[in-house]
Amino acid sequence: MLVERWVHLCIDMQRMFAEDTPWQVPWMKTVSPEVVEVASRFPQRTIFTRFIPPRNAGAMPGMWQAYYEKWPMMTTNRLAPEMIGLVSSLHALVPPARIFDKFLYSPWVDGRLHSALGSEEVGTIVLSGGETDICVLAAALGAIDLGYRVILLKDAVCSSADDTHDASLQLLGDRFSVQVEIMRTEEWLIDATDPDLR
Rank of each mutant, 00 (worst) to 15 (best):
C158P: 02
V136Q: 12
D162K: 12
P26F: 09
T75K: 01
A167D: 12
A57T: 00
G62M: 10
P81T: 07
P22R: 05
A143M: 04
P53G: 09
M13D: 04
G85E: 15
E34S: 08
E120C: 03
R50P: 04
P22G: 03
K154R: 14
A92H: 09
A66H: 07
G129P: 11
E186W: 03
L197D: 09
L86T: 06
V35H: 05
A140Q: 02
R175I: 01
A66C: 03
M73Q: 15
P26W: 08
R198N: 04
T164Q: 11
L127P: 04
H91C: 09
T185M: 10
P195N: 07
R41S: 12
A97Q: 08
A116T: 06
T76R: 15
T21H: 06
W108S: 02
S159P: 07
H91F: 04
S40R: 12
I52H: 11
F17N: 05
A80E: 15
A80S: 15
F17L: 13
V94Y: 04
W71H: 11
P95L: 13
N77P: 00
D145N: 14
R112Y: 04
F42K: 01
R41L: 08
V122S: 09
I190W: 08
V7K: 12
M28I: 11
D12C: 06
C158L: 02
M83D: 13
V36L: 13
V3D: 14
H91T: 03
R149P: 03
P107Q: 07
D12Q: 02
N77C: 06
V7T: 14
E120N: 07
L189W: 02
F51V: 02
G147Y: 12
E82K: 13
E37D: 12
T76L: 07
F176E: 10
S159R: 00
D110Y: 02
C158F: 05
G130I: 09
H114V: 00
I47Y: 06
A66G: 11
V7G: 04
R15I: 01
L117W: 14
Q14M: 13
A57C: 09
G58Y: 08
D163P: 00
D162W: 05
D166T: 08
I125R: 01
K154P: 01
T193G: 05
D163V: 00
M74S: 00
I134P: 01
M28G: 14
L169I: 07
P107E: 08
I11S: 03
L127F: 12
D133C: 08
D166F: 03
V31G: 10
G85Y: 08
M13Y: 04
L2G: 10
M28A: 14
P26L: 11
A139I: 00
L9N: 07
P81K: 08
D12L: 00
D166S: 13
D110M: 06
D101F: 02
A161Y: 10
A161P: 00
M183A: 13
V178E: 15
I190D: 14
P43I: 08
G130H: 03
D162E: 14
P81L: 03
T30F: 04
R98S: 12
A59H: 11
Q65M: 05
T193I: 05
I144F: 11
R41D: 09
L137M: 10
A59T: 10
L113R: 05
G129L: 07
Q14A: 13
I84H: 07
V7P: 09
S115W: 05
L169K: 02
S115T: 13
L171Y: 14
E19K: 06
A143Q: 06
T46Q: 10
